[in-house]
């Protein structure tokens, strides 16, 4: 009985995982074919679509923009978010919860509303559209995530460790860098990666706030509107590789040595 139900559950789990991963696998698979359309049968494997992509200047431009934006968003939101979370953790629980709900408001709004609101705002205040406006726009939605994640870590935080550091001769600044930050660094890096991921694949807010130019998602959108070719799969594969590589890197970096 239990053996059978165990097997059923395992099969069900495998099915769910398969359904979730198949589209990703297909994207990677088709990015390496010679087919002119995204379809079976696959006759020959090649890197043709990557070469096509790499020859286009607008791809490199969009790629660069995406990296600039996602990188800036990750750095800014993790610094500001960590500071905010540290401050919130020192408030009373009731005050902190009220502040968190307020800060998380943007997450509960549809991205479309935020996009339009930002468009109107930048327009009225006369701020020229650029990558900077996109970064500000992304911060609106990534910031709450970073604050929530780091705050959750701070709730169970052992403040006696920080007190100990002070007691053993560390100034507040030294105590932060030698004890507080190493203790929460994994969480902060994880939060920065999530901010980066949100920024990398955001389309709506980018679309409303970028003015001219492209990021990878708006570039794909532009291509889909004109002609669907497998080089889109190549872009997808590149994004996937970037995400996995940066996660692995972040995990290695967060190991404390010292």
């Amino acid at each position: 009985m239990t053996a059978v139900s165990n097997a059923l559950w395992r099969a069900f789990g495998a099915l769910v995982v398969a359904l979730m991963l198949t589209p990703l696998a297909l994207v990677v698979l088709f990015s390496f074919t010679d087919n002119a359309l995204t379809n079976f049968p696959i006759e020959r494997f090649s890197t043709r679509w990557f070469r096509t992509l790499f020859e286009r200047a607008e791809f490199w431009k969009a790629f660069g923009n995406s990296l600039t934006i996602a990188g800036s968003v990750a750095v800014i939101s993790s610094v500001v978010g960590t500071l905010a979370a540290l401050a919130l953790a020192r408030l009373g629980e009731r005050l902190a919860n009220a502040a968190l709900v307020t800060l998380c408001f943007p997450v509960m709004l549809p991205a479309l509303v935020i996009g339009i609101a930002l468009l109107v705002f930048f327009n009225k205040t006369g701020v020229p559209f650029s990558l900077a406006t996109v970064i500000l726009g992304h911060l609106v939605i990534t910031q709450p995530f970073v604050i929530l994640i780091v705050y959750a870590r701070m709730v169970g935080f052992d403040y006696a460790a920080v007190d100990s550091a002070r007691d053993l001769g560390a100034s507040p600044w030294v105590a932060f860098w030698t004890v507080t930050f190493p203790m929460v660094s994994t969480t902060v890096i994880g939060a920065a990666l999530i901010a980066m991921a949100i920024s990398l694949d955001d389309f709506i807010i980018t679309f409303f706030t970028i003015g001219g130019g492209n990021t990878l998602p708006t570039y794909i959108w532009g291509k889909v509107r004109t002609y669907l070719d497998p080089s889109i799969n190549a872009i997808g594969t590149i994004l996937l590789a970037l995400t996995i590589a940066s996660t692995v890197l972040a995990l290695r970096l967060s190991r404390y040595r010292g």
Binding site: D158, A160, V162, D163, S164, A165, D167, L168, V179
Partner: peptide, 16 residues
């Protein structure tokens, strides 16, 4: 605390 000639053992130990 860092400028006092005292050192403390905390109740939760506060190990790093």
């Amino acid at each position: 605390p860092e400028k006092r000639p005292t050192n403390m053992v905390f109740q939760g130990y506060g190990l790093f």
